[in-house]
Simulated assay, not measured.
Amino acid sequence: MSDLSELRFFRTPAHPCSYLEGRQAATLFVDPQTPLDARLYSELSRLGFRRSGDYLYRPHCEGCQACIPARVRVADFRPRRRHRRLIKRNSDLTVSEEPARYTREIYRLYARYIDQRHGDGDMFPPSEEQFTGFLTCDWADTRFHCFRDADDTLLAVAVTDHLDDGLSAVYTFFDPDQEARGLGVNALLWQIQASHRLGLPYLYLGYWIRQCQKMSYKSQYQPLELLRDGRWRLHTSDGG
């Protein structure tokens, strides 16, 4: 399907926002009966949609536009000094590209990460069914990029979707006991580099939320483009 005007959408009822206290949120989903493929996914990503499992969605909240789609302009990205230090710190890691599927090793790392980092979030408690339903997809071109140390111990997994104009950083989880490595930031820097190697112009980061610390960090990856009023515009403030 290439005519986006023919798509059907469903809006969820209002519910407490996960990011901004005291706010109500709603989500717009593409009709689950719609035949989806990587090409349509790419088109909708340019309109600010994200993937969760087999579903495509974007925030659609009454009276609030705090969640702004963000993407890194890859060719112009220059790592900062702290980024270069972090890359050097993790230079002993190797990265392998693996199919996006359940394995006991990968799930074990995911469960530890959710238990220790997101025990108060929507994904707790983790389960094998939830892992598969959240991260894998039948119609998307999804890869698990696995970061391992010299002992072949799995330390981080960057779940990455391949779009026609970039990579999409779907989710990253890592060993919560290896905080000094900065594994989450390292994985994102690797995804930027991977986009560049593949000749793709963008890395899609999901939603930037100025008022939410755990989402506002994305502005440190410059140049960053934000989707406002239907147009991708350069965001000039680094927000820290």
Rank of each mutant, 00 (worst) to 15 (best):
T136D: 00
Y113P: 01
H118K: 05
Y102N: 05
T160G: 01
Y110V: 04
H118S: 09
K88S: 12
F144N: 01
R84G: 04
R117N: 08
N90W: 14
D152V: 02
L109A: 02
T142E: 07
D92V: 07
E105W: 01
R84M: 06
Y107T: 02
R82T: 10
L86Q: 06
E105I: 11
L154M: 09
L155V: 13
L135Y: 03
D92T: 12
T153N: 07
M123W: 00
L109R: 13
R104L: 12
L135I: 07
D138T: 06
V95C: 01
F144Y: 11
D122C: 07
A111V: 01
L155N: 04
F147A: 09
K88T: 09
E105F: 05
V159A: 10
S96T: 06
N90R: 13
A150C: 15
S96K: 06
E98M: 10
D149R: 06
N90H: 11
D151C: 15
Y110P: 06
G133R: 10
F144R: 00
S127F: 12
L154N: 14
F131H: 07
L93D: 00
D152N: 15
R82I: 13
F134Q: 09
H83G: 13
H145C: 04
R143N: 06
I87W: 05
S96C: 13
D122T: 14
D120C: 11
Y113H: 09
M123H: 01
D122G: 04
L154C: 08
D141S: 14
R89S: 10
A111L: 11
V157H: 07
T132V: 06
T153I: 06
R101S: 08
T132C: 04
Y102F: 04
V157K: 02
R82G: 11
R84L: 10
I106E: 12
L154V: 15
A150G: 14
S127I: 11
S91R: 15
T142L: 13
G119Y: 04
D149A: 01
H118C: 13
F124A: 11
T136I: 03
R85W: 01
L155E: 03
Y113D: 10
S96D: 05
I106M: 07
G119F: 08
T153Q: 11
I87K: 07
E105M: 04
R143I: 05
A156Q: 07
Q130Y: 13
W139L: 08
F147M: 12
F124V: 02
R82L: 08
C146T: 12
V95H: 00
D151F: 14
F147R: 00
L154E: 02
I87E: 05
S91M: 08
D141N: 15
C137M: 05
E129V: 09
I106G: 15
L154D: 06
P126L: 02
Y110G: 07
N90T: 06
D138W: 13
P99R: 05
T103R: 10
P126Q: 00
Y113K: 04
F134H: 10
R148M: 03
L135A: 05
E129K: 12
R112L: 09
Q130C: 09
D120V: 09
I87T: 07
I114D: 04
P126W: 01
E129R: 15
R143S: 11
Y102E: 05
S127Y: 09
D138S: 12
